[in-house]
């Protein structure tokens, strides 16, 4: 469904992604792990069009997307839950949700998200719908960021460190949500530092180091491989 082919991305003159290639099949959840500075967020930004690659190709449902502007990538059905949530502080919770609401790019029989389905999924957002975006706790902001992305009715969801800065009990809740989304047939690429969350939700784990994919395997294979965990994840 999503395919990266030898992607090279730069920030100014810094060569961040140095030939990243992988494929995420439809309906699967892939987790991208690695230390800080490994290039995980840059990979997400390259796919979303925020930092377009200089070389290489990115395909979504067979079409190249690396040359598209950010909003067109989103319109094709790629939703983004960004690092740090990036909730709009001067919009209410409800406005944050509905501002980008739209029907799915293609009717594929999957769940059609509307405001009510998001409020069913995250009842706290309904309770706080008239609060400003910056009045929410970190966990609530994360739920809002997920809800906001789902309301664009994506077929593929990019999640950049959804557990960042959250308490363990909230991380568990986020994990439940990711599993539910996966069960609903949504394809997901999730960047994580939290190995527990990543291995719990993912079908396949990719490990990045210095701008390259250095290992890939199932969560079980990763949990048993002490050497990889120590070398690339520092655990």
């Amino acid at each position: 469904m999503l395919k990266l082919e030898n992607v090279h991305t730069y920030y100014g003159t810094s060569h961040i992604l140095q030939g990243v290639s992988f494929t995420v099949p439809e309906g699967k959840c892939y987790a991208l792990l690695g230390r800080n500075g490994a290039g995980k967020t840059t990979t997400i930004h390259s796919i979303a069009g925020l930092t377009p690659p200089k070389e290489g190709k990115i395909y979504f449902k067979g079409k190249t997307i690396h040359n598209l502007s950010v909003w067109k990538v989103s319109r094709l059905g790629i939703g983004l839950v960004p690092q740090g949530r990036r909730i709009f502080p001067s919009l209410t919770v409800k406005e944050n949700l509905i501002m980008s609401q739209r029907p799915p790019a293609s009717s594929n029989g999957k769940i059609h998200y509307d405001l009510d389905t998001i409020y069913d999924m995250f009842p706290i957002l309904k309770e706080r719908e008239n609060n400003w975006g910056n009045e929410l706790s970190g966990g609530q902001q994360q739920m809002l960021a997920i809800g906001r992305a789902l309301l664009t009715n994506p077929e593929f969801l990019l999640m950049d460190e959804p557990s960042e800065g959250l308490a363990p009990v909230i991380i568990d809740q986020i994990g439940d949500v990711v599993l539910k989304l996966k069960e609903s047939g949504l394809s997901i690429l999730m960047v994580e530092q939290n190995i527990e969350l990543a291995t719990r939700a993912a079908d396949q784990v990719l490990i990045m180091n210095k701008g390259r994919i250095v290992w890939s395997g199932t969560p079980e294979e990763l949990l048993q491989n002490e050497q990889i965990k120590q070398q690339y994840l520092g655990v």
Binding site: A48, G49, L50, S69, V70, W71, S74, R75, L80, P82, R86, F88, P89, S90, L91, E95, N96, I98, M99, S100, R102, R148, A149, T152
Partner: peptide, 21 residues
Amino acid sequence: RIGAIVRAGVDDREMVSALGI
């Protein structure tokens, strides 16, 4: 909604694009 989009644009333009606007 257009008002919300404009205010969101003041907050974080890039994120508004990333939501398909």
